[in-house]
């Protein structure tokens, strides 16, 4: 793997289980044990009821493009070198939206509603970023 020039996450104790799972090529969401709500992005409390009793649960990693943009101009580190790229909100089968990139698809073929599946970009040893590609 070449040097990854794009931003990397600052992993904290709160998000470590999520990123550890990504390293195993598993996408996790969270489910509240108190009220049953599924949420993304992961956090220490349930966004619906503020219970701290949230559990990690695997996502099937499948969904559809909710919306997207093909970016032609950016100052964002690393992304400037691979224009155009696709930034998207994906709606997972679990019902939550995930921001990500659509990769390995011709940007001209990306559309709202396109079925997608998660794919992991192994950016450095023990570290992978969830992205999406055509299912």
């Amino acid at each position: 793997m070449a040097d990854y020039a794009k931003p990397l996450p600052e992993i904290t104790a709160e998000s470590k289980p999520f990123w550890d799972a990504c390293a195993r090529h598993e996408l996790l969401v969270q489910k509240c044990r108190a009220c049953g709500t599924v949420q993304y992005y992961p956090r220490g409390v349930c966004a619906a009821c503020w219970s701290a009793d949230v559990e990690w649960t695997p996502s099937a990693g499948r969904g559809r493009v909710y919306t997207f943009t093909v970016t032609y101009r950016t100052q964002a580190r690393g992304f400037r070198d691979e224009l155009p790229y696709v930034l998207a909100w994906i709606e997972l089968e679990e019902g939550v939206q995930v921001m990500s990139n659509i990769v390995a698809v011709d940007p001209a073929k990306v559309a709202v509603g396109l079925p997608v599946r998660v794919t992991f970009d192994d950016v450095k040893e023990g570290f992978s970023i969830p992205k999406f590609t055509a299912a």
């Binding site: 794009k6 931003p7 990397l8 996450p9 600052e10 992993i11 998000s15 990123w19 993304y40 992005y41 919306t67 997207f68 943009t69 970016t71 101009r73 950016t74 100052q75 964002a76 690393g78 992304f79 790229y85 930034l87 998207a88 909100w89 995930v98 921001m99 990500s100 990139n101 970023i129 992205k131």
Partner: peptide
């Protein structure tokens, strides 16, 4: 929140474009 968004090359114009 950056670790779930900024990783993907977000810009102000990109967010509005979506």
């Amino acid at each position: 929140l950056d670790q779930f968004e900024a990783l993907y090359g977000t810009s102000t114009v990109g967010l509005y474009a979506m």
